[in-house]
Design a protein around this nucleic acid. Structure first.
Ligand SMILES: [Mn+2]
Ligand SMILES: [Mn+2]
Ligand SMILES: [Zn+2]
Ligand SMILES: [Zn+2]
Lengths: 149, 149
DNA sequence: TTTGAAATTGAAAATCAATTTCATTTTAAG
DNA sequence: CTTAAAATGAAATTGATTTTCAATTTCAAA
């Protein structure tokens, strides 16, 4: 379970396990990804209204540092968080009309990135790759609007 | 010249040409890319201390809207601007140690992005692709440090 | 268990870049 | 020219993020 891995990592770092951290992790892992702090806090507050916004903020920051969460800042400027399964990685397709966020992994893309980096003498640690456009549904609506008007 | 293209675009949009806008564009185009507002303002103020920070802010926003500039927000969170030659596009390699920013273009990457998008039914308008790691010089330093200690 | 140093919490305050306000000045069409 | 609309610049506001600090909780050691 993630919660025990979290406890282990915390004690490794000399951090303490608290009811608040456990609840926040629990709620975070059982929610959809790509939520902003306000949305995460709202869920937490619904379960335990005593937990402060600041604690949610600090816990998400901690989860990010320990690799349980990823902070994302897409082009709309909002800061979102999503749970990250151990060692996993993915990139994003983002719909500019309805806001839908699709995740993808592509080995060719990863190796092409490494090739590009090597060509420039870079040693790559991580990357960010986001594709912005219209999702299938929105592209369909858009073109039907064009046909009519 | 870019400045006449700028005037044309401004009048097309019902905007007025001003000394301030002309000076800011001139300075912006003749500086290195990837500068933040403070840096751009500092240069502008050196030439004409009467021009306000707000005007530089608004002009960069305008240049971005009209396609003369691109606003970039890399992972360090700073907002930077760079001049964009008409219709051009490039992506970035960013050194996590010295901050160096290298630009690259790669047709395979562009077409692979389109293939990935199509696979998910997306119609892509633009994208963001940043590779983070150590540049040649910094990677070299890092490994020599490792050898010694 | 008890103890107590260190860590955590949460409300409030501070920070700080981005944006807006508004009185004044400038532009450019007629 | 005249004049309405746009632009300017200093100051104020906004809003998300981060820090502060007094009170509370955790947990290792006694
Ligand atoms: Mn994701
Ligand atoms: Mn660039
Ligand atoms: Zn959509
Ligand atoms: Zn470097």
């Amino acid at each position: 379970m993630e919660s025990s891995r979290f406890k282990t990592r915390m004690s490794e770092e000399g951090l303490k396990s608290t009811r608040q951290r456990a609840e926040i992790l629990e709620i975070f892992l059982n929610s959809a990804g790509h939520q902003n702090l306000g949305q995460i806090y709202a869920r937490v507050a619904k379960t335990d209204p005593k937990i402060g916004y600041t604690t949610v903020y600090r816990t998400l920051k901690l989860l990010t540092r320990l690799g349980f969460a990823a902070q994302r800042k897409f082009a709309d400027g909002e800061t979102r968080y999503e749970p990250i399964p151990e060692g996993a990685h993915h990139d994003h397709l983002i719909c500019l009309r309805c806001g839908k966020i699709i995740e993808f992994e592509d080995d060719h893309l990863e190796s092409l990135q490494n090739r590009i980096a090597r060509r420039h003498g870079f040693d790559i640690f991580h990357h960010r790759m986001e594709l912005y456009g219209y999702c299938r549904q929105c592209a369909r609506k858009k073109s039907s609007i064009r046909r009519k008007g």
